[in-house]
Amino acid sequence: MNAEFFEALSMLEAERGLPAEYLLEKIKNAIVIAVKKDYDVEDENVSVEIDPATGKFNVSLLKQVVDEVEDTRTQISLEAAQAKRKTYKLGDMFQIPLKTKDFGRIAAQTAKHVIRQGLKEAERSQMYAEMQSKAHEIVSAVVTNVDPQRGIVTLELGKGGVATLPRNEQVPGETLTEGQHLQVYVVDVVESERGPRMMISRTHPGLVKRMFEMEVPEIFDGTVEIKAISREAGARTKMAVWSKDENVDPVGACIGPRGQRVAKIVEELGGEKIDIVRWNEDPAKFISEALSPADVVGVEILEGETRACRVTVPDHQLSLAIGNKGQNARLTARLTGYNIDIRPESGYYGEEPPVKKTEE
């Protein structure tokens, strides 16, 4: 029977991918619980030895050797113990070997239930660890179902299981269909009553960031660093890059030969525009770069607790600097962390100038 038991244990480890040590611990606990129920004793009165290396599988009931027996379930007299072995003395634990059939039907069912629960817990824990390793990464997915009423899309993530993409995490204007392959960003992995669950997104700035890390070798090897990124999914992304190597153009590296690298990412994002700008530790220079494609005449960093600045642009560049519905200025504010007040070079007329202001 022992040989069959250890063979079954090996099969469980191979098929479920669960560590043998974990399974053995759960099985030991299950047997202890079963013996406790069947013999009405406590943990200290049960001994379970399981050793796959030697094929040892022993279960014993332990009784303390005493002068006068008060509880026959947990105690044995010195005389009775020494009748079995002369070396027993007061205080020793007398071992009574048990056979599997001695556990009875209820004990066996209890052991089976606890083992089953242990396996479920182990698989759940393993699944959580596997999912957690994908947090803040891009995973490939296939659309399996689209709910047109609620706007929820169900995705198959391969070994990662199934996840739902809520409407607010979908790119505006993007139409997803069953069977479609796409990339999603894993924002987080959370525990729920039904097991671990991936929180995924198509709108998160991290999606674009990871795409560039995968597409641009200079980012992957650390020569070029993405310092900041801001995004309005489906419309425009601004990304600030910097290189520790003076001989490497960080913007050019991200754009790639004939624009191939950035073009590939734009295509994956359904035509979303991407502005790549050079990061600078000087806030004024960084803000000037970030307002691209507009030209900037000057940037004045305003004193005070709030991070704010006043930017002057040529008159004909004002609408370009602000962008459609304020998008360019808004993304620049998020990218740089500064509230931006944009003014034309010719200035304003009247006592109260109509300030074009964008907050982060």
Rank of each mutant, 00 (worst) to 15 (best):
M1A: 05
M1L: 13
A3V: 11
F5V: 06
A8P: 05
L9F: 06
M11V: 15
E13A: 15
A14K: 14
R16D: 01
L18P: 07
A20I: 11
A20K: 14
Y22E: 11
Y22R: 10
K26F: 11
K26W: 11
I27A: 09
I31F: 11
I31C: 06
V32T: 08
V32I: 14
V35I: 15
K36S: 03
Y39M: 07
D40E: 15
V41T: 04
V41H: 06
E42N: 12
V48T: 06
I50E: 03
K56D: 12
S60R: 12
K63N: 04
K63G: 03
K63P: 03
K63H: 05
V66T: 05
E68N: 08
D71C: 07
R73Q: 10
Q75K: 03
I76Y: 01
R85S: 12
T87V: 12
Y88E: 05
K89A: 13
K89C: 07
G91I: 05
D92F: 03
F94N: 02
F94Y: 05
Q95M: 02
L98W: 05
T100W: 14
T100Q: 09
F103A: 03
I106M: 15
Q109C: 06
K112F: 09
I115F: 02
K120Q: 14
K120P: 04
S125Q: 14
Q126S: 14
A129I: 09
Q132W: 09
S140V: 12
A141Q: 10
V142R: 06
V143Q: 13
T144L: 13
D147K: 01
P148C: 13
V153C: 14
T154D: 06
K159P: 07
K159G: 12
G160R: 09
G161P: 04
T164N: 13
N168F: 12
P172W: 11
E174C: 01
T175S: 12
T177C: 08
E178Y: 01
V184P: 07
Y185S: 12
V190A: 10
V190L: 11
P196E: 15
R197W: 15
R197P: 10
R202P: 02
T203V: 15
T203W: 07
H204M: 12
M211W: 06
F212G: 06
E213D: 06
M214E: 13
M214C: 04
M214Y: 09
E215T: 10
V216C: 07
I226E: 04
I226C: 00
I229W: 02
A233F: 03
G234S: 14
A235R: 15
T237P: 03
A240V: 01
V241D: 02
W242N: 04
S243E: 00
D245L: 02
D245G: 01
V248C: 04
V251H: 03
C254P: 00
G259E: 09
G259P: 08
V262E: 06
D275Y: 10
I276C: 12
N280M: 00
P283S: 03
K285A: 09
I287D: 00
E289W: 05
S292C: 09
S292N: 12
P293A: 09
E300K: 07
L302A: 12
G304W: 14
G304R: 10
R307V: 08
R310M: 04
Q317M: 06
A321G: 10
G323C: 02
G326C: 13
Q327K: 10
Q327V: 05
A329S: 01
L335Y: 05
D341F: 01
I342P: 00
E345P: 01
E345R: 06
S346L: 08
G347P: 00
E352I: 08
V355L: 02
T358L: 03
E359W: 09
